[in-house]
């Protein structure tokens, strides 16, 4: 971790890891899609629409994973002042927003045939919509502030305040009476999904997670370049180059 605190060293290590991560992501997606479409059977209640779950559930998990990652990075900004913490938080925001949007849209496309409605204002759906708006909010706040260190602190505070919504998203189905079904994978008494559907779901979840991590590393490297570019331009302007 100490070695990774150096942005240049982090960037060099990330450059070596990225092709392997990208390759593993592609392989897992190929296996996941094959399992999801050709191996997993139709569900006895959902029928063929269960196949939407193979993209909806991983996206929904990543929507919470992204904000949790940003919250840990925000602690890094405010408490430990880690040089890469703000870069990590900034890189995770568009990814989290994209996967939250996928979760919302695919959930709606599943809900129409299964529930008979595209949308209901129940606690789970509403809290995920709030999460999506929060992602847009932190990106807008960062874009609106010119001074990078001030932007980092304000975004970190907003992110940590917004973390309150993560347990609300997770436990909304337990705390309130929702149309959205309760947890069926991460349960104290074990998953309630048949292995024929659970295995493809977990493979796809791993593929989506690796995709998130691959893009996160790439965006972190890009942001480090952008910041170095900004620094060099300032130096060049000061020296009159």
């Amino acid at each position: 971790m100490i070695a990774l605190a150096n942005p240049a060293r982090f960037s060099a290590i990330a450059e070596k890891i990225l092709p392997w991560l990208a390759g593993a992501t592609a392989v897992l997606f190929a296996i996941g899609l094959w399992q999801g479409f050709f191996v997993a059977p139709a569900d006895y209640q959902q029928g063929e629409t269960v196949r939407i779950m193979f993209i909806h559930v991983p996206s929904a998990w990543l929507s919470m994973f992204g904000w949790t990652m940003m919250s840990i990075a925000s602690l890094g900004v405010l408490v430990w002042r880690h040089p890469l913490a703000d870069v990590a938080a900034q890189a995770a925001a568009p990814l989290g927003a994209a996967f939250t949007l996928i979760a919302l849209v695919t959930g709606s496309l599943w809900g129409r045939p299964m529930w008979g409605t595209w949308w209901v204002w129940d606690a789970r759906l509403t809290s995920v919509l709030v999460l999506f708006l929060m992602y847009l909010g932190v990106m807008a706040l960062r874009a609106a502030l010119d001074e990078p260190s001030r932007a980092a602190k304000l975004v970190a505070i907003l992110t940590l305040v917004g973390f309150v919504n993560i347990p609300i998203v997770k436990f909304s189905v337990d705390w309130w009476n929702t149309l959205h079904q309760g947890a069926s994978v991460f349960r104290v008494d074990g998953p309630t999904i048949h292995p024929a559907i659970l295995v493809p779901l977990l493979i796809n979840a791993l593929a989506f997670t690796l995709l998130f991590l691959t893009l996160h590393l790439l965006l972190m490297r890009t942001e480090l370049m952008r910041r170095r570019l900004r620094g060099l331009r300032l130096r060049a302007a000061e020296s009159g180059a």
Partner: peptide, 14 residues
């Protein structure tokens, strides 16, 4: 199936 359109739309959007 009657729901094929929803499945295709979901995968296409993703």
């Amino acid at each position: 199936t009657p729901h094929t359109g929803y499945i295709i739309a979901a995968y296409a959007f993703a």
